[in-house]
Amino acid sequence: MEINLIILAVLVCSALWTVMARSLLRSGIALAFTSAVLSIIIFRLNSPLAAVFELSVCAGLISVLFVSTISLTTPLTHKEVLKHMKARLSRFWYLPLILAAAAILLSRIKIDLNLNLPAAETENDARYCLWHLRQVDLMGQIIILLAGAFAVVILFREARKNGR
């Protein structure tokens, strides 16, 4: 139980690091670390295949894509970053307080749903599900990747070419 709580705390800290990091690159690395921690949680929940997916795709492949795209952007100067951070802190100082209050409140509430749910699907192998039962989702994801490629070309590469 304690180890789960520690991993969850690390996950929250890592997620906060992702959104609070001063540079986009650090933010991208923090996101990869968050995905890696999440994959440990998924593994501990007895879903090793989903954990491997999370680790390889989200922590691995997506991070590589993020870093490649970030390399196409022009980073802010140190002075600009500090100004931006200060403005953000003055606007959203109350958000961590709300988060902490919500966490305390939720930990005190005990809901007993007493659900009678059907057993999880186990008869089909994950590979069979992916390649035979969810072909339409794979198709959709390939289209999303294509759209992502166009996003990089249109919003980053061509903007850079035009000096914007």
Binding site: R134, V136, D137, G140, Q141, I143, I144, A147, G148, F150, A151, I154, L155
Partner: peptide
Amino acid sequence: FSLYVFMEVVAVVSFI
């Protein structure tokens, strides 16, 4: 779930 996947296709393209 497939509905959600295609909604994401539209969301990504709309953003661009």
